[in-house]
Design a protein around this nucleic acid. Sequence first.
DNA 1: GGTGTATCTCTTTTT
DNA 2: GAGATACACC
Length: 978
Amino acid sequence: MAGDRILDGLNAAQREAVTHDAGPLLIIAGAGTGKTTVITRRIAWLIARKKARPEEILALTFTDKAAAEMEERVDQLVPYGYADVEIATFHAFGDRLLREHALELGLQPDFRVLNRAEQVIFFRDRLFQFPLERYRPLGDPTKHLQAMITLISRMKDEDIAPEAYAAHAERLRALAAAAPDDAELAARAAQHAELARTYAKYQELMAASGAIDFGDQIVHALRLLRQRPYVLGGYQRRFKYILVDEFQDTNWAQFEIVKLLGARHANVAAVGDDNQAIYRWRGAAVSNFRGFLQHFPRARVLVLTENYRSHHRILDAAYRLILNNPDRLEESEEGRRHGVTKKLAAVRELDGAEPQHLHYETASQEADAVAQLIRERVEARAWKYDDVAVLVRSNSDADQFLRSFNLRGVPWTFSGNAGLYGRPEIRLLIAFLRAVAHPDDSVSLHYLALSDIYQVPIVDVTRCSTYADRRHRWLFDVFRRAEELREIRDELEDEGREAIRRLVADLTRYMELAREMPTGEVLYQFLVDSGWLARMSKAATARDEAEVQNISKFFRRVQDASKALRYDNLREFVNHLDGLIDAGEDPAVAEADVETPAVRVLTVHKAKGLEFPVVFLVSLVQDKFPLRGRREALEVPVELIRETLPAGDFHQQEERRLFYVGMTRARRELYLTSARDYGGARQRKVSQFVLEALDLPKDAARPFKAKAVEEIQRFAPPAEPDAARLAPIPPEQELLISHKQVDDYQTCPLKYRYVHVLRVPILRHHAVVYGSTIHKVVEHYLLRRTAGNYTSLEDLQAVYEREWDNQGFLTWEHEEARKAAGRQALTRFWHEEEAGGTKPTYVEKEFGFSLGADRVRGRFDRVDQDLFGATIIDYKTGDVAAQKVADRRAKESLQLKIYALAWREMTGALPQRVELRFLEANLVGRHTPDEGDTEEAGAAVEAAAVGIRARAFEATPSYSACRYCAYNQVCPFTATRE
DNA sequence: GGTGTATCTCTTTTT
DNA sequence: GAGATACACC
C-alpha cells in the first residue's frame, strides 16, 4: 500500500506529525525542516488510511503559489489522482463561501473583488459622499485616502466591524465630555468618530455597488459562519481535517475562521515557525501560536528541528541572532510547557565555512566586490551563476548591485514588485494611447513626437510647443495645421515637416480606428504599423527580450482592464488606466527568463520559502537593515486589538526575524556585506544583526580599498542622447529671469527645460487654478482701494463668480466645496480690509533689477509703506495649520528673499518685513529679512542663471521634486515609480 | 541635558 | 514637504 511511500525518508518527528491520528496539532517547523513535505504527506496519509475522504480535508495557505505547489505535491502522492482535497488560500476559500451564500449575506451574487488600486478609485469617485472633514482637506482632498484604506483593511484583519469602531469612538467622546480641559482627548475622539463613520459608509457604498475587497473575503465569510449556524454546521461536519500552512502569517480574523470550522472535530493541524513571522505590518498575529495552545489546551505540539538545508555553522549563527528576540515561543510559558526548542541541527549539509562578514569603504565598493567575487568563483567553477542569490532589504538597495553586475558582466535577474509603467517602452505605448484618446494631452503628444518612432527634430517640436503654449492651443492642432501657419511652415526643415505629417496622419487614423475597435486592437495595430512587432519578433539581446516581455505583459493588462469597462473604447480605457496609475498601480516588470543561468537578486521577503547554495545579504547597516521603524499614518486603536501584542520594540524584533529568514536561505555559503558610506553625509554603522549573528565585537568593521579608476567609471553619468544641443547664451547677452524660473531650475533643471524652454503645455492642477482665481479677486479689490474706490462685498463676490475656473477639480462636489471655502475666505478678507487694513502703497507692482549680466524681473502682490519702512506681501491659498508653520514658510521662502533683494536694489533699503498671507487659513507668516537672505537670493539667482546660460538641463530626480512634477509620467529620469 | 540645526528617508507584499 | 533623528553647541 501507498503508506510506505508516504512515510519514506521521514525523520521521527516528521513521521509523528504525518501520522498524528486525531485532535489538534501544532507543528513548529523551523527553517528548512521539511514543512511542506509534512503537510502534503499528512494529507496523503489521511486519505490512504481512510481517516477522511479527500473532500473532507481542507488545507489553507496564504499565496496562490503555495496552494498550487501543495496541490501538485498532493497529486503526486495520492495514487488515484482524485484531487478533491480542498486546497485554497484563505481568500479564495472565503470567496467561495461568499459566492455560495451571497444572498443570505445581502451581497450581490456576482460581486466584484476590488484590488488596492480599484479600491482607491472607488473611494475617490465617491469621496464627497463620505462624512469627512479633517481627513479631506480641500486643497488636497485625497491626501489621507491611502491611509484610510489601509486603516479599513487593518480593521478587517483584526475583525473589527464598523459598529465596534463606532462604539469605541463613542466611548472616547464620553470620556472627552467628562474632561472638558483635555483638548487632545477631544480631538482624538472627533478623529476616531470621523473615521468610524467613514468606515461604515465605505462598507455601505461597497455593498450598494456590488463590490467587496480582499479584507471582506475574510470578514464577510466570518460573519456568515457566525450568523448562519446551519451553514457553519454543514462545513463543520464536512471538514473532518483542517490543515493551516504558514500559521505565523495568519491574522486574527483568519484564525477565527479556523476555530469555527474546526470546532466540531478539533482536527486542526497548524504548521509554522514563529521565528519567520515577517508580516506583522499587514496584520499577521504571531500571538496566534500561543492562541492556538490556549484555544486547544490539549493540542499535541511537535517541533521539527532537523534541518535539511544548511550546515551547522550557518544555523548556529542564525540561532545566535534570533536568541536576541525576547518574545520567542520557546521562551514563553506555553513553549516551555511543551518543551519547544528551536535550535536547528544540520542533517544533510555536514560542514562548511563560517558565514563571512565583508565590510567596505563605500557602497559601490561593496557592490563591486560582490560582483567580482561571484565572477571569480564562477570562473573557478566553484559556483554557477544561478547558485547565487543577493538578498536586499528594500528594492532600492538592488540598484547598486545591478550596476556592478553589468560592469563586471555578471548575468542577473531582479524580481522587483513594480516598475512596468516606468519602462521606456511602456511609457511610449501609454503616451500613444493618451495622445489618441485625448488630443489635448500635449505632454503625451510631445513625448510621442520625440520618440524613436517619429523622430521629429527637437527644434521643430519646441517651436510648435511654444507656439501652442503662447496661443493657448493644443499642440496637436498646431501640428495639424503646421502647413498653414506661416510662422511654423517657413521654419520647418523637410525632415521635421515630414515627421510631423506622418505623426498627424497616424494619429488621425488611429482616432478613427478607436471609434470602432477595442483598445487592444488599436494598440496591436500601432505595434504592427510602427514596425515594433517586426522588431520584437527578432529580439536578439536579453534586453530586447525583456522589452518584448514587458510589452506583452502590458498587452495582457490592456485586455484584462478593457473587460472591466462598460464600453471598451479607447477613451474609457485611458481614463481607467490613468485612474489606476494615479491610484498607485504599477505591476512588476516581466520576470526574466529562468532558463538562462543568472544571479538572483531579490528582497528577503520574496526569498521566504526559497533556498540557494550561496547567499549574499547586502547593505547591512543600521537604518537600512534593520530599517528604521515607521508608524502607520492611521493606526487601529490598541484598545480594539484582541490579539496579545508583542512586548518591547516589536519593529526591531520583526526586522531581526527577517534577517533570520535571509540567513537561513543559504545552503553552503553565506556572506554578510556592508559599507561605511552609502552616499549620505553620515558614516553608517554596521548592522547590529551582523554583530549579533557572528558574535563580533562592536568595532569589527574592517575597511577595504577599491581601485580609484573603477570608482570614477562608476560615477560617470549615464550616456545621454545628445539632443541637438543649442549654443550657450553668451555672457554679454542679458538673461531675463523670474523667481519662478529660479525655483524651477533649483527643483530640477530638466523640469525648467520642460516648462520654460520646451514649454510643453500641461493641464493645470486645481490648486493652481484656484489660487490664481483668488489672486485675481484680491488684486481687483486692492487696485480699486489704492485708487480710492469702494468695492462692496457683493461686487467682490460677483468678480469671484466671474473669474471662477473649474479646471482640474476631482468632482463637482469638490469644486462646490472649494468654491464655498473661497467665498468665505474672501468675505473675511473684505471685512478685515474694510475694518481698517492699511491702504496699500503698491498693488501688483512690477520690479526689475540687474545682477551682473542677468536681469531679475517680477511683481509684488502688495507693498505697504509706513514710517518704519516697507512690508512686502504675497497672497497664498495653501493649507497651513499653525502660526509657526506660516512663519517658517515666510522665513524660508526663496520668493520673498528675491523680493527683499529686489526692494533693496531698487530703494537702497531692506524691507522692514516680508509676509505671506494665507487667505484660507487666515494666518500671516512674517519675517524680517536680513543681509543673509539677500545674499542667498543673489546666489540662487546666479546659480540658476549660470546653468540656464550653459543650457545645462540634467535632471536631478528626487522623491520630492518628482512627486508633484507634471511631467513625471513622461520624464525618463523620474524618481517616482508610477 | 536641553535646544536648535542639519540630515535623512519616504519599506516589506498578498489576497 | 514632513517628520524623525543625530549631532553640535551651550
